[in-house]
Design a protein around this nucleic acid. Structure first.
Lengths: 209, 209
DNA sequence: CGGCGTTTTGAGAGAGCTCAACATCGGTGG
DNA sequence: CCACCGATGTTGAGCTCTCTCAAAACGCCG
């Protein structure tokens, strides 16, 4: 997931997880379709996606799978399960994947002994909450044009007018919840009307976008 | 958390926030429609809803209000703003309400000195992340019918077949990102086809929903 | 060169939005 | 007690917009 599930930026694990905990981590390779954990299971720790894509899902009463989230490289998941006696959903590899597990006991011990780490973890979660809320805001925008504008405005670089695309347009379409056709058409229309200019993977915004 | 809740019980503030912080709190009474804080304002602290309902929202370009969350009695909000120099959304009383403010400085000081408090706070945030992810996934569903199904499945009570509505249908429509007309029509259609039964603020699901 | 995925454009249909009218309910004041 | 009023709930009709299906040009890599 090129853009990161939080929409804007991910806080790398190295930035806040103490080295002693990172040293206790183990990696696991998974094949597509394989489960990492199941609802009701006993939480093993904090997970980080190294490679591939992991989907978090539940199965409702009628047997239908409800996808809660799809995590990509660099993302952590099962944060909440650190504080829960059971998993609250299934985690399944959507592609061949590698995940890293930071053992629950070490993570919690680090938080107990090291208020700084605990607070950094809180700040990370708080940032996630903010970013997720931003994404919800984006998903409330019906119009493809406005949704793309919203994305571009939020992802403009330091100059506030340039957006460097990180993956394919098709991936971007999935990220912002449009079909790729709708995204292509919208970008083409914006370019025709002079709202943006495209060159390679870079988009430059005009003032009057 | 009237809507979008995963049904997990709330951790009362009294259980994890040190008495010294609670002693520093102040209560504020608000009338329906009154703002507690606005986007861009300087965070005062951590908020707890004592009575009534508080909605966190932003106003988009076209002037439409986008509800990010609705907080009910016992819930805290503005947690993320503890680590931010500005509020990132508006907080507005949906009903006459009372909120309690725990001053930012005291809260952060408590986290530094008391690992248990910091950890409980992390747990609260982790749960929020879960709920927000659930809502984002819901917004990926285009069909009104499927979106309503998703909501009902995730919010069914302990029997798995009954959903107790906590506010007006109009509020629910905003919560799940539909116009109120679309929601009325969808519920009526589901009822006609035998998928659900409605009585007052309660919805009962048939197995084959 | 040949194959595969991305990018692009076209045409049609379906679904939800918008605008509109009306019913219903609860509270308020004469 | 009833008339009024505002907000919620409900249904109708038309329209716009995106999705879907389809086809073709483009770019990359073996």
């Amino acid at each position: 997931m090129p853009w990161g599930s939080d929409g804007v930026s991910l806080m790398p694990v190295e930035n806040w997880l103490p080295a002693v905990v990172r040293a206790a981590a183990t990696d696991h390779k998974l094949k597509a379709g394989e489960a990492i954990f199941r609802l009701g299971g006993k939480p093993a720790g904090l997970y980080e996606v190294i490679m591939g894509r992991i989907r978090l899902a539940r199965v409702d009463r009628s047997g239908r799978e409800i996808v809660l989230h799809i995590a990509g490289p660099g993302e952590t998941f099962a944060e909440a399960s650190l504080f829960s006696p059971q998993y609250h959903c299934d985690a399944i590899a959507s592609t061949n994947a590698t995940v890293r597990v930071y053992p629950k006991r070490e993570v919690l011990a680090a938080f107990d002994k090291n208020p700084k780490a605990a607070q950094a973890f809180s700040a990370t979660l708080a940032r996630q909450v903010m970013n997720l809320r931003t994404r919800i805001e984006q998903r409330n925008i019906r119009s493809a044009r406005e949704r793309v504008r919203h994305f571009l405005a939020l992802n403009a670089g330091s100059d506030g007018r340039t957006v460097q695309l990180q993956g394919t347009l098709k991936d971007l379409a999935a990220e912002i919840g449009l079909t790729h056709e709708a995204l292509y058409r919208t970008l083409a229309a914006l370019e025709r009307s002079g709202g943006i200019k495209r060159k390679g993977g870079k988009i430059t915004l005009s003032k009057r976008l």
